[in-house]
Each structure stands twice: as structure tokens, then as C-alpha cells.
Simulated scan of single mutants.
Amino acid sequence: MPLTFPSRQSNSKPNRHSQGFLRHINRFFSGLINTAYDIGCNLLKSSLIEDDKSPIRSGHGVECGPFAITTTTFSIEHIKQIKTKLQVTVNDVITGVIIFGTRLYMQRANQDSSKGNCTALVLLNTRAIGGYKSVSEMIKPNAEMPWGNRFAFLQVSIPNLTASELNNPLKFVYKASQLIKRQRNSAAVYLTGQFLDAMTKIRGPEATARYIYGKLNNSSLMISNMIGPVEQMSLANIPIKGLYFTVPGIPQSLQLTIVSYVEKLRIVMSVEKGFIDPNKFKSCIEYAFEAISKAALE
């Protein structure tokens, strides 16, 4: 009677199960570590730790000061081509462009500032969206979608600009992709939103406003985005060529807001007037996009 041996398929099945189990375990523990680290950094950033003064951070509250606003527009189809070529997401590409362009401006203004401690706060909407609700429904106790804003901050450290990154701008896109993936494996955003809600209920909206102000004041820039209409709008039968939004009253010298509209993506740069040159900053963002596009597609 011939000897029989177990097939490879029967051995590979438990191996696949064990590998999948180990991946889940690793992801779980790395998520715990990322969450603890992010929450600790968020608390310290709002009270003790602040970014270095740099060409994009004057270091004093400028919420009531004059600001200059400039915009630039990119093709969403072009961004998708870069995304497909690099196998990343649209957010990765845009974040890489902003990080690279910001560091370029800092380096051109002050060579040493390109290695300074610089943090971006990404404003995220955590409000549940489940269709239209009237005001009377939203103000009811324990409403499914209660009245008021629901948001949280995602803290992103901007990588330094070195000679290797300057010669290979795609590194900024890949670094942005790594940062975003790491933040996704963290419950810090959800817990931060819950923390802000609890603080508002216990200590009142003034305490929450002071906490948010401290976090903004200690960081270098703010980034926020929203999805706009995919079809052209009109007002009084006059076609609207473009639109954008900005966040007034923040203490930072630089904020960038992003909105899509009819296959175009507009980046709005709101800068402290007399401190940041809006035209030079805009040219750095546009150069960063061109450099990343050329490196990715050619």
C-alpha cells in the first residue's frame, strides 16, 4: 500500500488563518499604541508644546489681523492620473503637494526653517449625515443628529525638507500616505470628538473654545476640505464659475482650505498679511504640484 502525504493545500489553509490572525493582533496593538500616542500629543499640543517660529508661523495670535487670500486650481482628472500611477489616494496626492509646497516656501524664506518643528491640524467633520432633518427634530433630547457642529482635529507632523526629498518629490506623497494610513489605525479622532462633546457639556462652550484655540495657536497651519457640487450651479440664471470657503478668526498665520467643483479642485491659501507673501506661497504650491506630476507621470 503506497504512502500518502498531506497535500500543500491542506497545510496552507491553517497557515493563512494563522497569518490573518497575527495581522489582526498586530493591527489591534498598533492601533492601541497609535491611539495613546495621538491623544497624548493632542493634549500636550493644546497646553505645553508649540511649533517653532518660522516663515509660516509668527507665534502670536492673529485672529483679528488682516489676511490675504489667494487661490489656485488643479484638474481632478490630472490628480487621479497621479493617484493611479503611484497607487495612492487623492487625499495622499493633495496632502503631499501641500506639505512639499509649504516646506519649499519655508526653505526659500529661511534655509534653516525647512527642518523646524511644524505641525498641521486637519479639521474633520464628525457629524453624522443621514438626510435632511428639521431644526425641531435636531433640538430634541437624544436626537439622532443633534443641533450644532461636530468636528475633531487630526494632528499631522510635516516632514523635513532634505536634499533627497528635493530631488525626489514623490517621497512627500508616500510620507503623506503613510501618515494618513497610520492615523486611520487610531481611534484618536473619534475619542477627540467625544472629548470635545464631554467638555462642552461639563465645563461649557467657553472651556472648549479655549482648548481649541490653544491647539490652533500652538500649531503652524490648518487644513480643511469639503466635497463640492459635481455639476455647475447658477445664481439668478448666472453660471457660477467657481467657489471656495475659508475659516475666519483663527490664530494661525496660514490656513489652507480645499473644495472640489465640477472636476476642479481649488486650494485656498489664507495668509497673515505682511508676514507671508501670498504670491510666493502660491507659486511654491503650484511648483510642488508640477514637480510631483512630472515625477509620477514621466
Rank of each mutant, 00 (worst) to 15 (best):
M1C: 10
P6N: 12
P6G: 08
R8D: 15
Q9E: 15
Q9D: 15
Q9P: 12
S10E: 15
S10M: 14
K13I: 14
P14C: 05
P14L: 09
P14K: 06
R16S: 14
H17E: 15
S18E: 15
Q19S: 10
Q19H: 09
L22E: 14
R23V: 14
L32D: 05
L32C: 13
T35G: 00
D38Q: 10
I39G: 01
I39T: 07
S46I: 00
S46V: 01
S46G: 06
S47Q: 06
L48K: 05
I49D: 08
I49C: 10
D51T: 09
D51G: 04
D52Y: 06
K53V: 14
P55D: 00
I56Y: 07
V62W: 00
P66V: 02
F67L: 10
I69R: 03
I69D: 08
I76M: 12
I76L: 14
H78K: 09
K80G: 09
K80T: 09
Q81M: 11
I82P: 00
T84D: 15
V88Y: 00
T89Q: 03
I94D: 01
G96H: 00
V97L: 10
I98W: 01
F100H: 10
G101V: 00
R108W: 05
N110I: 06
K115Q: 14
N117A: 12
N117P: 07
A120P: 08
A120N: 07
V122Q: 02
L123M: 09
A128R: 12
I129G: 14
G131H: 02
G131I: 03
K133Y: 11
S134I: 03
V135E: 08
E137N: 05
M138V: 04
K140L: 13
W147G: 12
G148Q: 07
G148H: 08
F151I: 01
F153E: 03
L154T: 12
Q155Y: 04
S157W: 06
N160G: 09
N160Q: 13
L161K: 04
S164F: 09
S164N: 12
N168W: 02
N168K: 08
P169T: 04
K171M: 13
F172T: 02
K175R: 13
A176H: 00
S177I: 08
S177H: 14
I180M: 11
Q183G: 04
N185P: 07
N185I: 04
S186C: 02
Q194M: 13
F195C: 09
M199Y: 02
M199E: 06
T200S: 11
G204K: 01
E206G: 05
A207R: 09
T208W: 02
Y211M: 07
G214N: 04
L216V: 06
L221Y: 01
S224Y: 00
S224M: 00
Q232N: 10
S234T: 13
A236T: 10
P239M: 04
I240V: 15
Y244G: 02
Y244T: 05
F245H: 11
P251I: 02
Q252R: 01
Q252A: 02
S253T: 06
S253R: 02
S253I: 02
L254A: 00
Q255S: 11
Q255C: 04
L256G: 00
T257S: 07
S260I: 05
S260D: 03
Y261I: 11
Y261A: 05
V262Y: 02
V262W: 01
V268D: 07
V268T: 15
K273R: 09
G274C: 09
I276V: 11
N279F: 11
N279Q: 13
S283R: 07
E286I: 07
A288D: 03
A295M: 08
A296C: 06
A296S: 11
A296K: 01
